[in-house]
Design a binder for these strands. Structure first.
Lengths: 228, 228
DNA sequence: TGTTCACGTTAAGACGGCGTTAAGATTTGA
DNA sequence: TCAAATCTTAACGCCGTCTTAACGTGAACA
């Protein structure tokens, strides 16, 4: 049997050890991380099957881990936190966490919830095989680190340009309507004349990608990224 | 928007009402059941998107609901129970429940966990939606991506041409009247002499499809796509 | 066999959407 | 607070798309 790998992001050493021991006894492979940065790094290098996450990290709020991971992966995330406030729970769940346990927790329950998570994952596994690195011609996107390369040279994109590029690249081959793009990028859609702005962003993006061919225009409809 | 349907299996009337009210306020459709038998019956008749289940039912243990449902469905099941015993929790989760809340619970948290469950479900639904490709002879239409291929080579269609082709292909074998096509494509029908325009579009479409045979003319009536 | 009618085809012109540049407004970071 | 980066808006030329007109073609019918 293939061991499942579990990434534990937790800054309290005592609890980290408790979880690690529990996992070890139950024959799971695992990795540990003590901060946001280490967590993301270990995620990309080990591609775990489940993430166990504490919200109280030294460098950033644990919520940021959820947001970051969700930009490129649907892996099950179980939050384990001392925060009992409902708002924290709801916030974490809505940002993409799959479960939320409050400390102190029962290790048997944690194991059961890990089994639930693995069940979900294996059910999804068929279609899921997405990596955190996207490649198309001379274009490369590292979703986990938020870097974009053209001809193996890093290029600088603004926030909106990056969002737009992610949107297009994750839907390569699919035509995205102006309206859809608008809603994804400008969450409140009455902010500006985004139809016009969009044209400018596409222009700039094409320029920075050093080729107009990645993004194809569908007149009257929208845009689409094509395999080159 | 399509309302999600939630089945609440709970024998305590007070809590049943509490959940029902919460769901109603948040614009979910729901069904209620007070026993194992009623729960299974309503499940089969309403095919809910999520099940909320109390373990203490009058006729059978709630665990039996999980076992039964899992023999034919992977629908998300959220257990809501007064039993705080870890064994009960673990047992329910291992039998196939997806989440477990202990009473008294916070309604906002319940709602958040319902959203998690629906997310899982819709994520799975995407996989099944993959087969939206139409084929007819050398013509291939990828509705989901909005692309059209002839002889395995992509062809470019304008917005109206694509709309027209979709209309015809989705009604292959059926004659569509001029009037019907007109209404579907030119929503405000007083815009132009669409009868004349239509002739031009059909010509161009036939040319782009590299064969006049896909679209057959019914003089005085309309057009129809035929299987070639 | 000629007439008529609906449709096919082509081409031209009008129209609108798009790409592009640049300048003003806004946000961000030191 | 100021400077730099970013976002929004305006303007304009170009090009693809849509519409319209004109003519050709073939079938039905007397």
């Amino acid at each position: 049997m293939n061991k499942s790998t579990i990434l534990v992001i937790e800054d309290d050493r005592a609890i980290q050890n408790l979880i690690a021991t529990t996992l070890e006894i139950n024959d799971y492979a695992y990795q540990t991380a003590s901060s946001y940065a280490e967590g993301i790094m270990k995620f990309t290098s080990h591609n775990p099957d489940v993430v166990i996450l504490d919200l109280g990290l030294p460098d950033k709020d644990g919520i940021e881990v959820i947001k970051k991971v969700r930009t490129f992966s649907g892996v099950p995330i179980i939050v384990v936190s001392a925060r009992t406030d409902n708002e924290d729970k709801i916030n974490a769940l809505d940002e993409g966490a799959d479960d939320y346990l409050t400390k102190p927790f029962n290790t048997q329950e944690l194991l059961a919830r890990i089994r639930v998570a693995l069940r979900h994952k294996s059910y999804n596994a068929e279609k899921d095989e997405q990596s955190s690195i996207f490649t198309n011609g001379n274009l490369k996107i590292d979703y986990a680190n938020g870097c974009v390369y053209v001809d193996d040279e890093e290029i600088h994109l603004t926030a909106i340009e990056y969002k737009l590029l992610c949107l297009l690249s994750k839907n390569t081959g699919k035509v995205l309507t102006h309206n859809y793009i608008k809603k994804e990028i400008w969450l409140d859609d009455n902010g500006c004349d985004s139809q016009l702005s969009l044209r400018v962003f596409v222009t700039n993006l094409r320029k920075k990608l050093k080729s107009p061919d990645y993004i194809k225009t569908h007149i009257g409809i929208g845009y689409r990224m094509v395999k080159v």
